[in-house]
Design a protein around this nucleic acid. Structure first.
Length: 288
DNA sequence: CTGCAGGGGTAAA
DNA sequence: TTTACCCCTGCA
């Protein structure tokens, strides 16, 4: 672990609030100076926006430039993506403008699976608290600038954690799901390394659905927000259902709209960019 | 202060 | 297709 710094000059499509508040991640916290500090893949990084430049600094287990280029998806042309989406219709133009600084992070697959299992029927403050407690109890301590941080535990580190211990950390009915999924992954009933190599999104999705606590919505979130990085998925939660109904379907009762109908609509409207479209729409609607 | 609905879904009936 | 599920928060 080495203290390092990297400055990305003249960044476009990169706003801290948009990236960290758009619902994709749970381990970034705002500092008094407006920067954010987070722990990912064993690194502790602080990100600060200075004018149009982005300053990354922290403790890294490799070269910081490579690490943040990968994690923050810096090599993808978001300007082009936004332009394409904004041309679809007025709604997309508005939502893309609202979340113009969004980047879809390449988060660790294992951590993303566990995090989104915890997210089921739950709210963000509580999800963040649970993940923090899991990390503090079972992850590795990292000290940087006098403060303690904890890496997200590996599957191996959770191997002997009991359902009761999870319950004490506030997981509620998700305790058994975490326990079973950890076991399935350790036993390679679902092989995460194989998943990363599988090009067919539908096959990966089927595999993820085998995990306890992973249903359609959580599976799609994992596909989109982890380093599996699939944009041809459309996670449908209450907010996305709401925004899609308000903009395009206009049923009196949005809960009556079938998932199938929303999925079909998303595919024909947004095609292979539907995952990104979902994120702009979701973020826009939730903040409205 | 007590009571109760509901939250970024899943699994079982 | 409907319902219960743990825990916390907001609000009547």
């Amino acid at each position: 672990m080495k203290e390092q710094e990297y400055i990305l000059k003249n960044a476009n499509s990169f706003e801290l609030k948009d990236i960290f508040d758009c619902g994709q991640c749970f381990r970034w916290n705002e500092e008094p100076d407006g920067s954010y500090t987070g722990v990912f893949k064993g690194n502790v990084i602080n990100v600060k926006k200075i004018g149009k430049d982005v300053c990354f600094k922290g403790l890294c287990n490799g070269n910081i430039k490579g690490i943040v280029e990968d994690y923050f998806d810096l090599n993808r042309d978001y300007e082009k993506i936004k332009h394409t989406l904004a041309k679809i219709d007025k709604n997309m133009e508005t939502s893309v403008n609202h979340g113009s600084g969004i980047r879809i992070l390449n988060q660790d697959l294992w951590e993303t699976i566990i995090s989104f299992i915890i997210s089921a029927n739950n709210n963000i403050p509580r999800i963040k608290g649970i993940i923090e407690r899991i990390s503090k109890n079972y992850g590795d301590k990292i000290v940087w600038e006098g403060k303690e941080y904890y890496s997200f535990p590996t599957a191996k580190q959770l191997e002997n954690v009991t359902v009761e211990e999870y319950r004490k950390l506030g997981l509620g009915f998700r305790d058994i799901r975490l326990y079973e999924t950890t076991k399935m992954i350790l036993d390679k009933k679902v092989d995460l390394e194989k998943l990363k190599k599988e090009p067919n999104t539908l096959i990966v999705r089927e595999e993820l659905l085998k995990l306890s606590g992973v249903g359609p919505k959580v599976a799609d979130c994992i596909l989109l927000f982890s380093d599996l990085k699939r944009f041809d998925v459309f996670p449908i939660d209450v907010w996305v259902r709401r925004v899609m109904n308000d903009l395009y379907i206009k049923e009196a009762d949005e809960t009556k709209v079938s998932k199938k109908r929303i999925e079909t609509l998303a595919k024909e409207k947004f095609g292979d960019l539907q995952g990104l479209a979902q994120q702009y729409l979701f973020y826009w609607r939730r903040e409205a």
